[in-house]
């Protein structure tokens, strides 16, 4: 398998624009932005050039932290940013197209912002040991 190497690097939210600019200068394509709700919020920005994929990881403690939008650098990022805003409730500042929460029309606002329900496996119930003689 000659799959491109994937690298993960964690950066601070303030350095996001700078890092995106560097990716743009290197000729990368924005592949996707993924938000995960763990105990904190984790955003992964993926950039790809031929033979490499780079993922920039940004961790923010809660959804009230506003992030800068990279749509001034990558024009197509507004779709991902609006999606993350609508599903996770994270605010992006300076989006080139801002749907104000009307991109995904979900019944509940920010439906995916709740932490994982089954983060740890439920302890297996012990097999019922018959204590008495079956009658």
């Amino acid at each position: 398998m000659n799959a491109p190497a994937q690298t993960y690097s964690e950066i601070a939210p303030e350095r996001l624009l700078e890092a995106a600019n560097a990716q743009r200068a290197a000729g990368s394509r924005l592949v996707q932005i993924c938000c995960s709700r763990l105990q904190h919020f984790e955003l992964l920005y993926s950039f790809s050039r031929p033979h490499t994929i780079e993922h920039l990881r940004i961790c923010i403690p809660d959804s009230r932290v506003a992030l800068p939008s990279i749509s001034s650098i990558y024009g197509g990022s507004f779709a991902y940013e609006n999606e993350i805003h609508d599903l996770y409730g994270i605010t992006f500042t300076g989006m080139n197209v801002d749907y104000q929460g009307h991109f995904f029309r979900t019944a509940i606002p920010a439906p995916m912002a709740v932490p994982p329900v089954c983060a740890a496996p439920a302890p297996k119930p012990n097999k019922p040991q018959p204590q008495k003689e079956p009658t």
Binding site: V31, Q32, C34, S36, R37, L38, G75, G76, F78, A79, E83, P116, C118, A119, A120, P121
Partner: peptide, 18 residues
């Protein structure tokens, strides 16, 4: 564990919207 923390699909249609 048997339960994944996160599964994400970025489908081609979503990328083709912009």
């Amino acid at each position: 564990t048997k339960f994944l923390d996160r599964f994400r699909v970025r489908t081609p249609t979503f990328a083709n919207i912009p």
